[in-house]
């Protein structure tokens, strides 16, 4: 077993050498690369990576360039997770037969957007988790198909205006609630499932390192604020992420062995959900008189979820 990288504070962390390169074509202010950096820098071990089709893939592997300084593969929209699972199975087999040239255990990580995880790649991820590969699946959850122009995915929250669920005179936008992916993946019996956000970097590093240490398939749902589709200024990425975690719209918690739930971040001052909604263009129609009742519903839904998480943590089930 390789050593865990020691990261006590941000200064110590800043001595890391990035294995993800600039001049990729992600939008200015995109949270995807902040998440990728935090994941890759959490370890010094070799990495076997994949990315499912999505913003991250199309922007970091534009022929003739690659932005990845580690083994990285892209195949299709749905099978980013299985590509890594295959590599992991091969590594395990070669190791058992003693045919590995080097005795270095790499970390296996697949990146995918919410579209490639919640919808299109769901069956493949479920398969990987059922077979129990020793890998990590990181979802860059921007709650929309941002790469193809902002179509709704099953991660899009209620009231959000997406191009296939536009808000207008008749409709308030997306009508279905976000899929509770963490509960689904925890139900697979995964040893570690966590929800993280890039603005809480320490929390995130802890979760990622815990995930790397765990034996078996690990699921990480990382909130990725999207400046283009959530419609806010590029410099506000971190401020919006702070609003999301502090208003508990995106609570940070982990589920260990599919059983024990821990809340990993408790905001000192809880911000009203209204502030989070008001900061983004995709929710601006909710502030018309016609749709104002939805803000109250949002707050109730968030409170209910937070209450549920707290009760589960307390009962440790």
């Amino acid at each position: 077993m390789s050593e865990i990288k020691k990261i006590k504070n941000l200064k110590e962390f800043s001595t890391s050498a990035d294995r993800f390169e600039g001049a990729n074509l992600l939008c200015p202010g995109c949270a995807h690369s902040i998440i990728v950096r935090e994941v890759l820098n959490a370890t010094n071990d070799d990495l076997i990576l994949s990315a499912a089709t999505g913003c991250l893939e199309v922007c970091t592997a534009v022929y003739p360039y690659t932005s990845w300084d580690a083994s990285w593969i892209h195949i299709g929209f749905e099978n980013g997770s299985t590509a890594v699972a295959g590599a992991e199975a091969m590594h395990k087999a070669l190791k058992r037969k003693g045919r590995l040239k080097q005795d270095r255990d790499p970390k296996f990580v697949s990146f995918a957007g919410d579209g490639a995880s919640y919808d299109i790649g769901f069956q493949w991820i479920s398969g990987c988790f059922e077979r129990g590969h020793n890998m990590m699946h990181v979802v860059l959850d921007n709650e929309v198909y941002a790469n193809t122009g902002g179509q709704r995915s099953s991660s899009t929250p209620i009231g959000s205006s997406a191009t296939t669920s536009p808000a207008g005179r008749i409709s308030y936008g997306e009508k279905k609630n976000k899929k509770d992916m963490l509960a689904i993946m925890a139900a697979h019996g995964s040893p570690y499932v966590a929800q993280v956000a890039p603005n809480k970097w320490k929390n995130m590093i802890k979760a990622i390192q815990h995930g790397f240490e765990a034996e078996g398939p690990v699921f990480i749902n990382a909130m990725s604020a999207c400046t283009t589709e959530w419609k806010f200024a590029p410099e506000d990425t971190i401020a919006i992420s702070d609003l999301a975690t502090d208003s508990l719209v995106f609570p940070l918690y982990e589920i260990i062995d599919g059983q024990k739930l821990n809340i990993t971040y408790r905001p000192k001052n809880v911000v009203p959900v209204e502030e989070y909604l008001a900061a983004q263009g995709r929710f601006k129609h909710l502030f018309k008189d016609q749709y104002k009742y939805l803000i109250k519903e949002w707050q109730e839904r968030v409170d209910q979820k937070w209450d549920y998480l707290q009760r589960r943590e307390e009962a440790s089930v």
Partner: peptide, 22 residues
């Protein structure tokens, strides 16, 4: 003050930090 907030949150690996100094 070398807090490194810019380093961790830079999406483009453009903040150069060496030996804990920006």
């Amino acid at each position: 003050i070398d807090c490194q907030f810019c380093w961790i949150y830079c999406p483009d690996m453009s903040i150069i930090s060496r030996d804990k100094k920006m």
